[in-house]
Write a protein that binds this DNA or RNA. Structure first.
Lengths: 202, 202
DNA sequence: AGTATATTAGACCGGTCGGTCAAGTCAAGG
DNA sequence: CCTTGACTTGACCGACCGGTCTAATATACT
């Protein structure tokens, strides 16, 4: 039981790293197997298809995020607005570390996959969409609390939360294209300036 | 001369459509040739490699943009801030039209390619980066004029311009993942709320 | 011990990939 | 008329793709 779990985890971890560092299409199952020290037959014992592997990778990373620094950043002990800065900082240091390790800024796995596969694979698209919804919910909660505490004037918290997530993804996209994490540090904090007013504030 | 130019243009137009609608890796040269009614040998007469084709597609699209609705949106006759709304509207209608034609929101060709290839292909990455720089410059000019005209309080126009571009790309990314152009219409206008203050406003 | 089951091993499959190449077609210029 | 060089044709290449399959092996239960 520990052996197979280990094998599956090794596949998952390797796939995640490769998908994140390159792309879905560019990484073959053979390469994943070689790097994970697993044979093809074993791979297809655990994952029925490459698509299923991708699903598992998305879920895996999403869980790690939720339990990792997203949980830290959106800790309710922090003042709501500081959570946004925490999130930006976390992304900055992460991407910076990844770049000095691999030489390239990998960007956001979810964003990368979303743009690559969402015109071609409904199942993966839906999954990625759910990940974004979940992320947006964290922003939403923080904004609601910020308004409640009077730290922010009232606004359309749901729309603004999504807008903030979009901004982060956009900043990461640009930073990756420049291959320069500093873009995140410089542009990131402006996330706090984004506002969408209430439609009918009567 | 008209024949060969036609062939090259047909390849370019077909490749652009396919790359935009799907992805770089997912579209093969054979498919492009078939759809463009061109033989493989002819293809390689005009383009030394798939990478060269991608470069040409990027340049082609970039030119069309610059001469097309980017030129319209950033027309100096328009009040600077209205140019931002014009840009958002243009993207919205474009994506909406594309979706009703193909069933899927293709998103931004440059953003798509950037996330897909920039960890793997320095040449394409640099080209895409240049496209973004050029786009950012349009925003920059608009912001400078807005400040000059007193329509906006002073701010770090260069950084804010890049932030606005990032925001747009992020909004398109999210909209594509949702496969819903309405995201652009709802989140887009908040581009005007983004601000990065001057570092040393003393 | 014996048997069922989960896992591993790795050869193998048809198909596609980007790219090459030799043999031509064709129009323009001398 | 003949040569030149741009363009086209389509067969061909080795490599790799995702995925299958059979046989061997480790593990778990009775």
């Amino acid at each position: 039981m520990s052996i197979n779990a280990d094998t599956k985890d090794r596949i998952l971890a390797t796939a995640r790293e490769l998908f994140h560092g390159r792309s879905y299409a560019d990484v073959g199952i053979k390469e994943i197997c070689t790097l994970a020290n697993v044979q093809k037959g074993s791979f297809y014992h655990f994952f029925p298809s490459k698509q299923d592997l991708a699903m598992a990778v998305i879920d895996d990373m999403s869980d790690d995020w939720a339990q990792g620094f997203v949980a830290e950043a959106f800790d309710e002990a922090l003042p709501p607005i500081e959570r946004l800065d925490y999130m930006v900082d976390a992304i900055y240091y992460w991407q910076k570390a990844a770049k000095s390790a691999e030489g390239r800024m990998p960007g956001c796995l979810f964003g990368n996959l979303a743009l690559e596969v969402s015109t071609r694979d409904e199942v993966l698209r839906a999954r990625l969409n759910a990940v974004f919804d979940k992320a947006s919910a964290s922003f939403h909660k923080a904004l609601e609390q910020a308004v409640e505490l009077g730290e922010m004037p009232p606004l359309d918290t749901a729309a603004t939360a999504t807008a903030m997530l979009a901004y982060l993804e956009g900043v990461i996209l640009l930073a990756k294209t420049r291959n320069d994490p500093e873009v995140v540090r410089i542009l990131g904090p402006a996330i706090k300036s984004i506002r969408i007013e209430l439609r009918h504030p009567n």
